[in-house]
Design a protein around this nucleic acid. Structure first.
Lengths: 191, 191, 191, 191
DNA sequence: GATGAATGAGAGTTCATTCAT
DNA sequence: CATGAATGAACTCTCATTCAT
């Protein structure tokens, strides 16, 4: 006889929002953003098309919010401790990178496939760069302490290696992840 | 007003085909395959929509043939000389990889952006793997001669590093390509 | 916590109904019937969408009842006194017409904008014509007493002039209403 | 064997564009702009939905171009001769107004129904006002020569009367147009 | 070989309406 | 009496593809 309480509504909204983002994430990762249709996301989520627009203003908004959430999750994953510029930090970085891809291949896939769609990323890019700077500085310092000739170039090299490894973790089913992780650590961590 | 000879026709066809693939390549690279319209390609090429269908059965066919052409160009770029498993071969590989991306960023961009679209790649993948095997074997052997613990994993690592470097050459305008090339060579080429 | 009496309920219903019609009237007048959404009306009224359907069977029903109410208000405004066919009656008519528009520009706007939407008006038109007939007869008789050549045509002319003036009162912010009222009276009231 | 000539294409485009605007005009006039669907216009024109977008960028663009065309037609109808401020000019004005509505009731209907949709008109309004000013001045001068107390108010009154008469010509099937035209001329033309 | 008008399926989106609570 | 999550039909618009010429 009485309407649902505000708490009930809030709970429903949270769950449905999560259902939509999770489903969309999977569809986007599988087929790419542009090739995915809102219809298909709704079907897979077992809801109506219209409901998606009750939670997101547009398909693009849905994508942006998913990507944003992923970035936040990544940021959480790499808590920056600038005091620690030792090999431990780099090892931690390598481990977390593998962890992120292996635990959540869909999120990683989406991030990679989206990175080539400039339009979408432009808005996020500033935020991302801002957040990335401390990591870049920290790694650069690490290579300085190792007396590398060009620490900054080494840092760029290090991140590009991580990119390449992630790419193969995602798309190359034969990629020997554990062995490569060992190699990586040997290459970059000098005791 | 004299009727064209068969040779002339063939020449015209070849030129038109090239015009279409070149334009489409650029448009695909810039906006992504799904976001590009046939209309736009025709406009940019200065021809009519209909003409494209005179040379390709569909938009997807156009994409596949472009990607196929790119692979062929890459294959040509890396003439396999299995006798030479020395550091020279690896250096050659690194140089060619940089060359390919820098000389033809559009082709590289297209390849990367397309890689995440499973449907298109599935067909090509088998062909690619088949062609890649000799290179993979050659590089594996190289790491064997260097007495690496796990030469196959090293080979996978090597190719993933190249992937990561390419990715950054394409999308990261601040990437110090020359310095990184030096680092790469130092890392993988032991004299 | 005591149960409300039936009278109290009735009062609440009346107030809520009025709140809904008043809000809808304003929204319809501002944006037009088709461009207005039920959601927007609910928002502006500070109630839920569902509640509107507790009082009206549909958006169209809401519109019809509002229009109907307006007509009733107009009818009340012009109490017909058929004995008085003198200039006083016509002057009264002119005054009331100005009064109606100026006092309640939203109602007037809605009526005019709705008039061109055939579907809605068809149902009302019969009722309106029925109610209007006495006025038309009264005005026709007035022009008869003034010995006009074609009193019926004059009556139609008179009403069309009132229509035109109303239109300009609503949409033309530079319209000199007081001066035009004077002119109108001079034109139609002969002592 | 050869493509259509440019002239042929131009002819086709002209005819199709006219077919679309004519059909849309009728549909808009009958059902109002917002209540009309592009689908319905296409059906009535016997063409596909898509074709409409080959000629107009949007439904709103279609409306704007139709309204614009109407205004241009009206402007042509009233060639301004500012030297002639006599009764002849006013008579001419009255005649043309009747002519416009009677000859082309759909266009008149559309203009009236659209006038209440502010958004659409805003863009046109400036142009319209600019074009209307000479007419307003001309009519004001006419009432000056007639020694009217307030010539400007008379001018506004005159145009509002024309508006009201047009409204009734359009929507009131019983409106005695010829008789009212006579009355109008008697009211405003003093010899 | 070449054109571009035309199609139609399907895209993203909106919104009146329903209903469990 | 009141809520707002949920639906689905219908909307505007896009675009790969066809075809008469």
């Amino acid at each position: 006889m009485s309407p649902k309480t505000k708490t009930q509504y809030k709970l429903i909204r949270q769950e449905k929002r999560a259902l939509i983002t999770d489903t969309a994430l999977r569809v986007f990762a599988e087929e790419g953003y542009h090739a995915s249709s809102v219809n298909r996301i709704a079907e897979r989520a077992g809801i109506s098309k219209g409901l998606i627009y009750n939670y997101f203003t547009s398909k693009e908004d849905l994508l942006k919010k998913i990507v944003f959430d992923i970035y936040n999750k990544i940021i959480e994953k790499y808590p920056l401790n600038t005091k620690e510029t030792s090999g431990k930090h780099v090892e931690f970085f390598i481990d977390k990178t593998f962890e992120f891809v292996i635990e959540d291949i869909d999120r990683a896939k989406l991030l990679f496939s989206i990175s080539s769609q400039t339009e979408v990323m432009e808005i996020l890019n500033e935020k991302v760069i801002e957040k990335s700077l401390p990591f870049m500085n920290s790694i650069t310092k690490y290579f300085q302490t190792l007396k590398h000739e060009n620490p900054e170039a080494m840092m760029y090299y290090f991140f590009s290696v991580l990119d390449g490894v992630q790419l193969n973790l995602i798309y190359n089913s034969k990629f020997p992840s554990e062995s490569v992780k060992e190699i990586l650590k040997n290459q970059f961590i000098k005791s």
